[in-house]
């Protein structure tokens, strides 16, 4: 098992380098450079701009630029933001990370606590009213675009019923302790449900088909023939096998933990990574875009690594390869 983990970690390193190359190349391929926006400003002398270009190393050949950037990045230095003057990209990202994590964890919580139990129940009571209802909900969740669902949710639950706030993360910064926690949670509910809707549907369908598949297998028949209770057959023998593919799905989900949700965060004016990314793009803030892309790329890789390791923990057939 340690050999397997070591192998996965060793694969992780070249992948990481490839991610940096992709992030850098994408940024270089984008039209213009960080100073393009200012060429339109008649108050700035084009020669001054050219001097600044030279100073920033933007005229160097691409591989030198990449090397310089990589050296900085490897020291944890993502550069200065162009749009938010005087702030580094690390600072900006760190300021948004908590909100993004709250949102991601909350929506993952909804996904697991709603999607899995319904999926399992639906498999056990196949072709009953509950199963059909869950299936209908599944198609609804998968086909509903989340910006549209967000708007409907805001209209009904914020404006008509007034149950949840339509935007932001806190109503007042003066709250402390438990009250502050409740307030944050209150703000998370609509964006969290919106974000979790489609993955809840996916998990539900996934676990349903997995449970059905495993329930029909020979070793479940063996478990029944041993005289085990239906409970033990389901929760021990079936679920342990059905959850294996779900683990992979969760690894991917972990990768998106830090990326934020550009659309949902925008609709709910939720100050997370997704929104920061959008601001970066709108203002051609290259260091910020590259910084966020890099962080997201790294978390996705880490998520896959985590999934691979968990996979080996739950499935002995992989462990002993």
């Amino acid at each position: 098992m340690y050999k397997y983990i070591l192998r996965r970690v060793l694969v992780f390193i070249p992948m990481l380098l490839i991610v940096t190359v992709v992030v850098f190349t994408l940024a270089s391929l984008a039209p213009g450079d960080p100073l393009t926006g200012q060429t339109l400003d008649p108050n700035i002398d084009p020669e001054v701009l050219e001097e600044r270009r030279e100073a920033m190393g933007l005229n160097d050949p691409p591989h030198i630029q990449y090397w310089n950037w990589l050296t900085e990045v490897s020291q944890g230095n993502l550069g200065d933001s162009l749009h938010y003057s005087g702030r580094t990209v690390e600072e900006l990202i760190i300021s948004r990370v908590p909100n993004t994590i709250y949102l991601a964890v909350f929506s993952l919580f909804i996904t697991i606590s709603v999607g899995l139990p319904i999926g399992i129940y639906s498999a056990r009571k196949q072709y009953t009213v509950v199963d059909y209802t869950a299936t209908t909900f599944g198609f609804f969740g998968l086909s509903m675009p989340n910006f549209f669902f967000a708007l409907i949710a805001i209209y009904f639950f914020s404006f008509q019923l007034g149950w949840f706030p339509p935007r932001g993360t806190v109503s007042s910064t003066s709250l402390t302790g438990f009250e502050s926690f409740i307030d944050r949670l209150h703000h998370l509910i609509l964006p969290g449900i919106t974000l979790g809707l489609s993955s809840t549907a996916i998990y539900m369908r996934y676990i349903r088909s997995e449970v059905l598949d495993v329930m029909g297998s020979d070793y479940i028949r063996t478990a029944r023939a041993k005289g085990l209770t239906e409970r033990s057959v389901l929760y021990k023998h079936t679920l342990r096998n059905s959850l294996i593919p779900i683990i992979t799905l969760m690894g991917f989900e972990f990768g998106t933990l830090l990326s934020g949700a550009v659309i949902v965060e925008s609709v709910f004016s939720f100050p997370g990574m997704g929104q920061l990314f959008l601001v970066g793009i709108e203002n051609q803030d290259f260091p910020l875009i590259m910084g966020i892309n890099l962080i997201v790329g790294v978390t996705i890789l880490a998520g896959n690594l985590l999934a691979d390791i968990l996979y080996a923990v739950v499935d002995p057939r992989i462990r002993y390869d």
Binding site: D218, T222, A225, K226, G227, R240, I244, V314, P316, R317
Partner: peptide, 25 residues
């Protein structure tokens, strides 16, 4: 009936390759 299965009557099946649960020892 659960007390009969596996206790009074034991059973073995045709497919030894798939009749044991892969994730338990």
């Amino acid at each position: 009936m659960m007390k009969v299965r596996g206790n009074d009557i034991g059973m073995i099946f045709q497919e030894p390759m798939t009749s044991l649960n892969p994730v338990f020892t």
